[in-house]
Design a protein around this nucleic acid. Structure first.
Lengths: 138, 138
DNA sequence: CAGAATCCCAGGGGATACTG
DNA sequence: CAGTATCCCCTGGGATTCTG
């Protein structure tokens, strides 16, 4: 909305003098991070992105590859991602209608760190599991 | 709970034959990923982890470094992270009470990909902003 | 100071039914 | 097929108050 900022580096957390200082200073940049984090961190976005990384898919296929997602949530998720420039939505003027989704360049760049998180989760999930059992038995 | 699985690699998304197959196969591994993703992807965890990466902090300080977090949510977040073995909670037997939080080794390893996501958000947030304005003006 | 307990509300998200 | 529209429940999470 406000193109009035001059870019500049934004630290997630300042060395030790105030996250608030760096993020809140120019108004919306601090929120932008949480904003984007909220998007990619939501229940389905990462799964959609990971699935689409394998190649373009139509709506139904996409849903088939993501067990448990409702039609409604898939629609909403994919619309958000489209709005953010992370996926493209292509409608083919046929009947019955066909719509295909694909990652954009931006989406592909996001896949890299997203994948890193997923890999971390996979690599450490039993370690976490043990930590939980230990904590619960305490 | 069930130590009956033989580890093995878990793919986030199978090359093209079924996310369901790989994840749902052994029962809880598929859910575990979404589970962990949900934890780190929630509204506050990443911020807490990032803040703690700078060094150990007591409750009040932690809250001071994370603008907008309520006492309640900080408590809940930090407890979850403790349960997952990502932070340690040290209570000093003093009066008034002092409690300090610090990242564990595991927590530090999580910080790496977490940081990558945050960096991505920072690096692309104006690109996303433009995509949104474009989409909304469409 | 560091929480635990309660209250309460907005909205996230599932199930279902309808449409172009 | 690929959505949209509703209904409705449940949880996330803020504000406030109480305690060791």
């Amino acid at each position: 909305m406000s193109p009035t900022h001059t870019a500049g580096t934004i630290e997630l957390v300042e060395p030790r003098s105030g996250y608030e200082g760096s993020c809140r200073a120019h108004g919306n940049d601090g929120r932008a991070i949480g904003d984007i984090l909220a998007r990619i961190g939501d229940k389905w976005s990462l799964l959609v992105i990971a699935t689409l990384h394998e190649g373009r898919l139509r709506f139904g296929e996409l849903q088939g590859h993501i067990p448990g997602i409702s039609q409604r949530m898939l629609t909403l998720t994919v619309r958000q991602l489209e709005r953010d420039g992370i996926v493209t939505r292509t409608v083919f003027p046929e009947v019955p209608p066909r719509v295909e989704y694909e990652l954009t360049e931006l989406g592909e760049t996001l896949f890299v760190p997203a994948r890193a998180i997923a890999d971390w989760a996979v690599a450490h999930h039993d370690e976490i599991e043990r930590a939980r059992t230990a904590y619960d038995a305490r």
